[in-house]
Simulated scan of single mutants.
Amino acid sequence: MSDTPEQSTFDGDELRFDDFQIDGFESEDAPIASPFTPERDLSFFKKIPVTVTLEVASKEIPLGDLMKAGEGSVIELDKLNGEPLDVKVNGSLMGHAEVVVINDKYGLRLIDVVDSALSSMGD
């Protein structure tokens, strides 16, 4: 006979996690995450400077053709007259706008804002 204890195989079905209690891990007093958690105060974002760009139109042309362009040359762009222009914030599309003139300065009037532009701000 041998003195070694008999080894048994582990059966995962016999493991019951309800029997475990870990101190400090979960308590009845701990706040429970809720889908109705109040929004965080994000007012500090209001002071961060960003670059707003109004993109009139664009065109991809070979560098050789661009090098031939001179004073008086016309390069046809991809937007139609009266079509809304792209408003970009730090290079990302924010929405569309039209050009206005206010006190002899150009401005823009927002026509629409892209839904995804600011929706991820609070994530």
Rank of each mutant, 00 (worst) to 15 (best):
T53N: 04
F20G: 06
P5S: 14
L77N: 04
A33G: 03
M1I: 10
G70Q: 06
E6M: 11
V114M: 11
D3L: 13
G82S: 10
K59I: 03
D18I: 03
V87K: 00
P31E: 04
E26L: 12
Q21V: 09
V99W: 15
F10Q: 06
D86I: 00
N81A: 08
N81Q: 12
D123E: 10
E83R: 00
G64K: 15
A57K: 10
D115I: 02
S119P: 00
V56H: 07
P35C: 01
L15D: 01
F17R: 02
E28A: 13
F44H: 11
S73W: 10
D86W: 00
D29G: 10
F25T: 02
S27F: 04
D78Y: 15
I111E: 08
L93G: 03
G82T: 01
D11Q: 02
Q7Y: 05
G122S: 13
Q21H: 04
A117I: 08
K105F: 12
R16V: 08
D41Q: 15
V101Y: 15
G95F: 01
V114W: 05
M94A: 07
P35R: 02
S73Q: 10
G95E: 06
S116V: 10
A33Q: 04
I22Q: 01
L93W: 00
N103D: 06
A97V: 09
E6Q: 14
V89F: 09
K47T: 13
N81W: 02
A30H: 09
V114K: 09
I32P: 00
L85P: 00
F17G: 07
L15N: 06
G95C: 12
A33E: 08
D41Y: 01
I111Y: 13
K59A: 09
T37K: 06
E98R: 01
S58A: 06
L63M: 13
A69R: 03
S73M: 04
T37F: 02
E39N: 07
D112V: 04
A117D: 03
I75V: 07
K88A: 13
L15Q: 07
I32H: 07
S27P: 02
K47S: 11
S8F: 08
E60C: 02
S43C: 14
V89R: 02
S120M: 08
D23V: 11
M67T: 15
G12N: 05
S58D: 12
V52K: 01
R40A: 15
A30Q: 06
T4A: 10
D115W: 00
E55W: 09
L42T: 04
D41H: 07
E71I: 14
P62N: 15
S116H: 15
M121F: 02
D23R: 11
G95W: 01
R40K: 14
E14N: 06
K59P: 05
I32K: 08
G72M: 04
D112L: 01
V100G: 14
G72E: 14
S27C: 04
D3K: 08
